[in-house]
Write a protein that binds this DNA or RNA. Sequence first.
DNA 1: CGCCCGCTTGATCGTCATCAAGGGCGGTGG
DNA 2: CCACCGCCCTTGATGACGATCAAGCGGGCG
Lengths: 255, 255
Amino acid sequence: MANLGCPLKGGAGKRTGSPINIGGLLANLPLFQQLRESEIVNLAAAAREIGLSKGQILFQRGTLLDGFYVVVQGQVKLAFSSPQGHEKVVAIIEPGQSFGEAMMFLEKPCPVFAQALADTHLLYIAKRGIFAAIDHDSAFARRMLAGLSIRLRSLIHDVEDYSLHSSTQRVIGFLLHLAGTPDSGSATLELPTSKHVIASRLNLTPETLSRILHDLSESELIAVKGRHITVLDMARLRQFDDLLPPSHPLCDKSG
Amino acid sequence: MANLGCPLKGGAGKRTGSPINIGGLLANLPLFQQLRESEIVNLAAAAREIGLSKGQILFQRGTLLDGFYVVVQGQVKLAFSSPQGHEKVVAIIEPGQSFGEAMMFLEKPCPVFAQALADTHLLYIAKRGIFAAIDHDSAFARRMLAGLSIRLRSLIHDVEDYSLHSSTQRVIGFLLHLAGTPDSGSATLELPTSKHVIASRLNLTPETLSRILHDLSESELIAVKGRHITVLDMARLRQFDDLLPPSHPLCDKSG
DNA sequence: CGCCCGCTTGATCGTCATCAAGGGCGGTGG
DNA sequence: CCACCGCCCTTGATGACGATCAAGCGGGCG
């Protein structure tokens, strides 16, 4: 994976300024890290740059995707909205992450819409580029399969969360996730976006999230200061989680 | 896809009796329908037959899967269970459908357990067979990707359902799904398994499901007789669904 | 300075789970 | 053929969790 510093100034970027090095960006993404240079070049030829300003919609629900997206900078949310104008955030996509692959392969209308949560810089990679890479390199196909599998697993995790855990448990799980590795002691973290988006991601109203954070503070499990949260004792928070009553004790019995 | 009637009496079946034609079964599955005969033979070599009696556990949560499963006959449920012994059914797998691919590719512990809902007959296909097929045939890789994408879409649909729809709406959606194509008029259907499993699949308690079916009956939208349900008027049921209040109107606003 | 927006706090209400009995149907045995 | 039992499902009464409605607070920015 030698120097891709060459001025691969790819497709039709909408934006002024930096003729960004698409090949270089691609080569750094987890999915593409093991591709040969020539393959990166091909991929770059199928890619283009997209700039989005905060609040801008990338695509609506129902769109047919002929490629997928990688976030380079900024943040994108995927969500669906009910006819009544309410909405539910499914995922918050951070730099280095991608989305839309599944709907690209399926060639079915996308069930969610995508909106920039901040000024954002994306790569769009057309289907043909990916199909070519799959044809050339079966290891790439496997990595793509593994990538989709990861998504699937995380959606299953969400379903488990919504089904089996109370709102407080979901919030704690989210905090522990953001706090990452530290297994004990304290950890400081910053919420990746506004609280009402987080709330929706966790299937809560902003009011409920606020109350839960308040309660956790009162119990001296965390300290909240705006978007900055300190988990005072990772171990204690985890065990508090376990002690909580389950939310939806569905019926038991075997089939 | 000529005669695979040859006695491909595959791997170590646990069961007595019929040396079932694994190649023939594989060739009929959606995923494998376009493979060449020689490829089917290779796949069959990586496959074996598994018999399960009603209630038997196929694998527990946390298992590492080194292959995936195809239901030939019977029914399998995938579910997770909380420490308190409650459980939530994620999927009900019918003949011709497969499961476990994602966890096979990921090589991570499976987040759900699998249990037979009836006496069941499965094929197990080892990872090496699939990897070989991917290496030989990039079209197969694409089909595998499309297969995972379908799963992903249906999980997203579930998340939408749980987040945005009331319990009555979920039940109606389920009934409309089972009823299938008829866009208007009436349709009769049979629940694929016991009501308490259905309830769990829909994230309800059996009591709630019972009450909802009762109410829909009283409104003369459906008629229930044991596992047999008649949708009296597809169009009316659909529109009733639309008129219902949304369940969890989460907050709005854009980011 | 004052407005707007994101967040918090309080009061109330609805949906759905829980707990507790009561039917109905099929199977088994007398 | 009928009696008994178990299992699944239903029905009723109650309660809790979290949504809704409605103010109030604070901080950033024009």
